[in-house]
Simulated assay, not measured.
Amino acid sequence: MPNAVRYYQTGGPEVLRWEDIQVGDPGPGQVRIRHEAVGLNFADTYFRTGLYPVQLPAGMGVEAAGVVEAVGPDVTHVRAGDRVTYTGSPLGAYSTERVMPAAPLIALPDGIGCNTAAAMTMRGLTCAYLLRRIHPLKPGDTVLLHAAAGGVGLIFTQWAKLLGITVIGTVSTEEKAAVAHANGCDHVLVCPRADSPDNTAARVREITDGAGVPVVFDSIGAATYATSLKSLARRGLLVCFGTASGPVPPIDAMELVTGGSLFVTRPALADYIADPADRAELAGELFDHVQAGRIRISINQRYELADAVQAHRDLESGRSIGSSVFSL
């Protein structure tokens, strides 16, 4: 019988339930997909805790890869038997099978397996829009990336190296520092959460001869917001693309002025892949790099889907390195 992880109230990992489910036939614009691997992303915890509110009860997860088993009317871009991956709403990726809209599905090249796809679709497309759409980065630029040993971080640093961009990365442990450096991070700063924000920013300025960086990519949020602003060069851009430590504080416009006419943006992947042509272009570039071996996908944590509670505990503990997947 098909199974899924669902939750009926918001809260800690313990609210997740492993249940038997019924999976019907796809309707117009839908497919039935059998998952072979499911992505575990920090964004999943935002839904579980209620930071991203949804109507309950709800499924869990936004990323998976598998095989299309049936297609409904009006579905033309995929067929039964196709290997596909996806990221995005509606929730429900933590399942062995599901019926879902066909629109988000991306065909998988033969050289990319489902486990790799589930480990990189959301993270890789995030890196794609951060590096290729947010700011006109050019060879020789230096950027600051928080959480450089995470799933996004390891892909980002490899891709940045291909573009000739120097990356200053922050991590929380020496073990993570070694991993980040091995994946192309040029300067790795070990910055535990208790570290002084002023100290981190000062180290960034030492590396950049006092100038600061033109762009900071920050997925941590509340704990690093002040550090990120103080690390920017004049007219620099802070890209807040995650809130692992909590939402960023309300923006003080005068702080942006006194910091050097700074900019702040809070982008979402969904807005950069909503157009099918944009999604195909970004996915194509990502897949090409992975198939050619220019970008390696590190799967360092694997779980059974029934172990979602433990997986969320591990994820929120900060112990995870690289990508995590549920293998079915």
Rank of each mutant, 00 (worst) to 15 (best):
D74G: 06
T200K: 14
V5H: 05
P101C: 09
A103P: 14
D186E: 13
P28F: 07
A70C: 04
P109F: 07
E69S: 08
E175D: 13
A277N: 09
D288S: 13
G260A: 01
V62I: 12
S231P: 06
T157K: 12
H146Q: 10
P214W: 02
A283P: 07
V15Y: 01
V179S: 04
Y272Q: 08
L137D: 00
M122E: 13
K176T: 08
G140K: 06
G151T: 03
G259D: 01
G169M: 05
V325K: 13
L40Q: 09
A268K: 12
L105W: 11
A226E: 12
Y8F: 14
G246D: 04
L154F: 13
E19L: 03
A222T: 05
A202D: 10
D74Q: 14
G293F: 02
E14Y: 04
G88A: 12
H135V: 04
G260Q: 00
G164Y: 04
A4I: 01
E285F: 07
L238Q: 13
D278E: 15
H289S: 08
G242W: 06
V38W: 11
L130A: 06
A280V: 07
Y225D: 06
T96L: 14
L51F: 15
G284V: 08
V188N: 09
E206D: 15
P104C: 08
V264W: 06
C114R: 08
S228P: 05
V179R: 11
L105A: 13
A80Y: 07
E97Y: 08
L108P: 02
G150D: 02
A177G: 12
Q301W: 09
L154P: 09
V257S: 15
A182R: 10
S317P: 11
Q291W: 02
P197F: 02
H187E: 15
A180H: 07
G151A: 11
D252H: 12
T200I: 15
T173Y: 11
A119K: 03
P192S: 04
E281C: 11
V257M: 15
Q30I: 09
A118T: 02
